[in-house]
């Protein structure tokens, strides 16, 4: 390879594939906690593309955005898992097929 390093497009491709795997997991998983983990996977994939673009433009702000996403994701995980515990107490199940009170 003439130039050193690897193209940034590969990082973006990895990010896109991870995001798609997260969406597929969101669609096929049948456990509430695993569905929530797929959302975390999507958040991580988006963070990777933020860091890649921050490297591309030599900008610090992209990395700071990732830092804020991490903090919000930590808060989201705490609240989401609390909701999951509340749902489990009310319905005694984690299967998303049985949690269908708001379904049409």
């Amino acid at each position: 390879m003439a130039q050193p390093g690897i193209p940034l497009a590969w990082y973006l491709m990895l990010s896109a594939i991870l995001f798609s795997l997260g969406v597929i997991g969101f669609l096929i998983k049948r456990n509430l906690i695993t569905v929530f983990m797929s959302i975390e996977l999507m958040l991580n994939a988006v963070n990777l593309s933020f860091v890649t673009f921050a490297h591309q433009w030599h900008a610090v702000k992209g990395q700071i955005f990732v830092f804020f996403v991490m903090m919000v994701a930590a808060a989201e995980a705490a609240v989401g898992l609390a909701i999951i515990i509340a749902v489990f107490r009310a319905r005694a199940t984690l299967a998303v097929d049985r949690i269908d009170l708001m379904k049409l």
Binding site: Q3, P4, G5, L8, A9, A16, H55
Partner: peptide, 20 residues
Amino acid sequence: FLALLATVLLKAHGLGRAAM
């Protein structure tokens, strides 16, 4: 979505490279 992103990214110009 994945196909769209793949075509856009593989055709993109101006994306740099990352080195150690």
